[in-house]
Nucleic acid binder design. Structure first.
Lengths: 186, 186
DNA sequence: GGCAAGCGGTAGACAGTGTCTACGCGACGG
DNA sequence: CCGTCGCGTAGACACTGTCTACCGCTTGCC
């Protein structure tokens, strides 16, 4: 048996498989095969297939969280520049890890609190609120939520190709600028 | 055999089933059972399960299109009022038909052009562009795309409960106002 | 009128899935 | 030495999507 307990090995195998073959390939049995165990083994650690998927998605939230933290660290205190950098990273994440991005926002995983959604997303949201407060926004909470939703919507619709189709643009940059500037002027 | 050819009956059965039991229940065989035919019958009209799902999703786009058209008809020529009405309808659609909303934006259905995405979404987008042009926006195309993405993001994240968790709000209204006003001032 | 052809649906097979259950092996404590 | 128990195996079950062979019924044609 290889190093590491099976629980973490299963999640790691899932992340690998997700990156290589996409969401559809993430069957319970295939993950188990990747980890070198029988199809019944995951049940010891994850009561259901969805629970395993949720654990894999949680890994994505962790990664996105560190990306955000890095971005905030790199970019200066200028709210606009920081927000734009953040927006680009968000869209890049969706593009570079499409499978993970799709998995992270599957509604059926979010119901119940399979993922510690509150724990995972609150700090990210806090960063936005802080930046908008620095920009002296009247209602930073509503603004931050709206901006987050806007960035998420751009990432998702761009990822699907919808926005390319309707706008004819070949980069999401103008949309990011429009979204950030719009919310900063609110 | 009941009225209507099997193709439309299958789609109708799918829409029903989707509303009653959600996305997961939309198996090929269950839809066929609902329509009163054997599991092999759908194959005559839809080469694959995904094709049938895409046809069902297309029905959702049609419905959303008519809702948008109605909203524009009802509300006056005031861009802000019209946009807010539109935003509320969009979020309401996501809340009232969660299964359909989830199906419509499943990325695996969007790849390839299973759904006539361009045909379905371009008119909706055109409405937004027109309203923003009326509001004398500098770059109506980018603004309309960003606003659409924002509304979609709010509808989706609200639907999942994410925004309730981080903001503590119990209605998406402040977010809609923030999004619309922000993009109007751009 | 008889008959071939083909449309539209049935039925069974096949590999694969998630979940459940019974079993087994190996280490560890008494 | 033996029981216990954690951890993984292996098989069964119902169900899925796809493929293929079949079959009845209508339709067109000579």
């Amino acid at each position: 048996m290889q190093p590491g307990d099976l629980e973490t090995r299963l999640v790691a195998a899932g992340v690998e498989l997700l990156a290589e073959a996409g969401t559809d390939a993430l069957s319970l049995r295939e993950i188990a095969r990747r980890a070198g165990v029988s199809h019944g083994a995951p049940r010891r650690y994850f009561p259901t297939h969805q629970a395993l998927l949720a654990a894999i998605a949680r890994e994505g939230y962790r990664k996105l969280g560190t990306v955000v933290a890095e971005t905030i660290g790199e970019s200066g205190a200028q709210p606009r520049a920081a927000l734009l950098a953040l927006a680009r990273r968000y869209v890049d994440f969706a593009r570079n890890e499409p499978g993970m991005f799709a998995l992270m926002f599957r509604h059926d995983l979010l119901r119940g609190n399979n993922i510690g959604l509150r724990e995972q997303s609150t700090p990210l949201f806090g960063v936005l609120v802080k930046l908008l407060t620095q920009a002296r926004l009247a209602q930073p909470t509503a603004g931050a939520a709206a901006l987050w939703a806007a960035l998420h919507g751009i990432a998702q619709l761009w990822h699907w190709g919808t926005l390319q189709v309707v706008t004819g643009f070949d980069t999401p940059e103008p949309l990011l600028v429009a979204a950030v500037d719009a919310h900063l002027k609110g």
